Amino acid sequence: MAAGGDHGSPDSYRSPLASRYASPEMCFVFSDRYKFRTWRQLWLWLAEAEQTLGLPITDEQIQEMKSNLENIDFKMAAEEEKRLRHDVMAHVHTFGHCCPKAAGIIHLGATSCYVGDNTDLIILRNALDLLLPKLARVISRLADFAKERASLPTLGFTHFQPAQLTTVGKRCCLWIQDLCMDLQNLKRVRDDLRFRGVKGTTGTQASFLQLFEGDDHKVEQLDKMVTEKAGFKRAFIITGQTYTRKVDIEVLSVLASLGASVHKICTDIRLLANLKEMEEPFEKQQIGSSAMPYKRNPMRSERCCSLARHLMTLVMDPLQTASVQWFERTLDDSANRRICLAEAFLTADTILNTLQNISEGLVVYPKVIERRIRQELPFMATENIIMAMVKAGGSRQDCHEKIRVLSQQAASVVKQEGGDNDLIERIQVDAYFSPIHSQLDHLLDPSSFTGRASQQVQRFLEEEVYPLLKPYESVMKVKAELCL
């Protein structure tokens, strides 16, 4: 049975990233139509530049190519590739079939990587351009969430054990800070992308030097003109047959890092959902379990974690691919890159769409948070109580021993009897502590235990987050809708 299948058929496997999760716009960027249309555009740009620099290419040939950029006979191309065992030459023939007058000058002087690699770089750039505003929107939604809850005390956790208090907004800023680093890295790697350009079979530009009869300047002009037509500021000066596969490492490393950030955020949300302090959106008709109707599973956060793990592992592909590119190139890269580049971007696209949807509907339960604080705060307040007693004339050592005994009794009630923490009640009825009984409410005010959390939130948002989001103001209103 021949390899390949009808990918629109229910009898043929289709990647869930495309069929179930990723956005239509990201799927289109990695589609065959987008790819092969870009090949034709690159052939047109090459012909236009070659004509401008004096090669015998007519206006009629150029116009014929322009008129057929979208006229792609995919069936013919597939048949040609089956016959020739070469995808680029299959599309040269297919393009030439609908451009008979231009057929002889299509791909003039070029090698397969002229269309293959340059198209990949265009796709990487455009895919990054799709991700950047999506990530900015996630940051914006979380920034709104953090600002609104900047002063809401909550129990902090280290080692997932109760620690000092923080605020809900401050905790959210930990998430935002990681995503801001990801946004900066995505922008950097996007701006650092260079075009492969017009380089020939081993990167020496020998074929173009021959076409222009040894004119170095025209060869350099050709490279520059096509690079500018493709919208790049610069091209690699040095290439082998391909652009260095280190570029793929750079791009997928940034995406993998984004995956790590999203995994951490969504894990926190899942843990908070278990504590009943916070939940992701839950639709009115949504079913959490087929057997347990009360369940409210954090399905979206779980999906993000599941896909983020996949995204983090994909960076190993370009690392290994770059390491086995012998001399000017081997074909070890080809099949692998067809999979890992598309999957990385479709996965990143999915987790950003999902995280935006989550961040637009996060639900906080202040009463649950308050109750958990009441359970733990008495123990945390013991040092403040000791200091207040010393100020009232008591002995630190005597007070410490009193607190120690009462704390152990209260802990026994919590752990052995399943009761509430009654340390404060014990202190309130103990005559030894009568000098500070009137101060206990103040000493137990949760806001006095959150330090500068709310001020940190305000400063972080104003100095770091809002300036970073400013270039994306025009796209901030787009909502994230999930079908599944």
Score class of each variant (00 low, 15 high):
Ser290Val: 09
Gln325Ala: 08
Asp182Tyr: 04
Val262Thr: 07
Lys82Leu: 08
Gln177Pro: 02
Asp420Val: 15
Lys101Leu: 08
Gly197Pro: 14
Lys82Glu: 05
Asp191Leu: 11
Glu343Asp: 05
Asp332Met: 07
Ile105His: 05
Glu220Asn: 15
Asn185His: 10
Leu314Tyr: 10
Val115Glu: 06
Thr166Glu: 00
Thr94Ser: 01
Ser474Ala: 11
Ala77His: 15
Val429Arg: 10
Phe30Arg: 10
Ser140Val: 12
Ala273Glu: 06
Asp420Asn: 00
Gln456Val: 06
Phe95Tyr: 00
Ile287Ser: 01
Ala322Cys: 02
Gly96Asn: 15
Val390Trp: 15
Leu130Cys: 12
Phe449Asp: 14
Val457Leu: 03
Lys134Asn: 14
Ala78Ile: 02
Leu152Cys: 14
His217Glu: 02
His91Asp: 08
Phe327Ala: 04
Leu155Trp: 01
Ala127Met: 05
Leu131Ala: 15
Gln325Cys: 10
Asp192Trp: 03
Met292Trp: 06
Glu64Ala: 04
Cys27Thr: 15
Lys82Asn: 09
Phe36Lys: 06
Leu135Thr: 09
Leu346Glu: 13
Gln221Ser: 01
Leu84Met: 09
Gln439Asp: 13
Leu142Tyr: 04
Asn384Tyr: 10
Ala150Val: 05
Lys276Thr: 08
Glu48His: 07
Tyr466Ser: 11
Pro293Lys: 11
Phe345Gly: 07
Val226Cys: 11
Tyr114Ser: 01
Leu346Tyr: 02
Asp223Ser: 04
Glu462Asp: 00
Ala348Trp: 04
Tyr466Pro: 14
Ile403Glu: 01
Met89Gly: 04
Val115His: 15
His437Trp: 03
Arg85Ser: 08
Cys113Val: 09
Val478Arg: 15
Leu69Tyr: 00
Glu463Ser: 08
Leu314Gln: 06
Arg329Cys: 14
Thr321His: 12
Gln285Leu: 08
Val219Tyr: 14
Ile122Val: 03
Ala2Cys: 06
Leu193Val: 03
Val115Ala: 02
Ala453Gly: 11
Ser306Lys: 13
Glu213Arg: 10
Thr154Lys: 03
Ile139His: 04
Gly259Tyr: 14
His159Glu: 00
Leu132Lys: 10
Lys170Thr: 07
His217Lys: 14
Met299Ser: 13
Gln41Lys: 10
Arg40Met: 15
Asp59Phe: 08
His217Trp: 04
Phe157Thr: 04
Ala102Pro: 02
Thr52Ile: 04
Lys170Tyr: 06
